[in-house]
């Protein structure tokens, strides 16, 4: 085969190892979610998910070997997503800093809860 410079052929064992790692990480993330770590739970969950996502991206999607431009495109997507999240949350998380009455959202309970026979939807 003369075209190995464009088609990297990943050895079979890498696929199998990566898939096993993904399975193990899935089990770990389920197990950890049952332990109460306070605010760290979400960080651990996202951390494990990110490792899994990177394994998929680098090995299943070949980013490790492929042209670097694909990695650049993928990173660009993540960059724009981060910008979107961070700048929006600068607003949504800091509305009460100067005017406390602006904190939170406008209406805590949607109207349909008033008509539902419920004892548990109070804030």
């Amino acid at each position: 085969m003369n075209n190995t410079h464009t088609h990297h052929i990943t050895p079979l064992w890498i696929y199998l190892v990566v898939a096993s790692a993904l399975m193990v990480l899935t089990i770990i993330t389920v197990a950890v979610s049952n332990i109460d770590l306070g605010g760290f739970n979400v960080l651990v969950a996202l951390g494990i998910a990110s490792i899994k996502a990177l394994l998929v991206a680098f090995f299943f999607m070949q980013l490790w070997w492929d042209k670097k431009i694909y990695l650049v495109i993928f990173s660009t997507a993540m960059l724009f997503l981060t910008i979107f999240l961070v700048l929006t949350m600068f607003d949504t998380q800091t509305r009460g800093y100067i005017n406390p009455e602006m904190d939170g959202r406008i209406k805590p309970n949607a109207p349909m809860y008033d008509t539902m026979e419920s004892t548990s939807t109070t804030h």
Binding site: V30, S33, I35, I48, A49
Partner: peptide, 12 residues
């Protein structure tokens, strides 16, 4: 889905 699963099903 790798992100959806912990974010929706495994909120600590």
């Amino acid at each position: 889905w790798i992100f959806l699963f912990p974010l929706l099903y495994l909120i600590g």
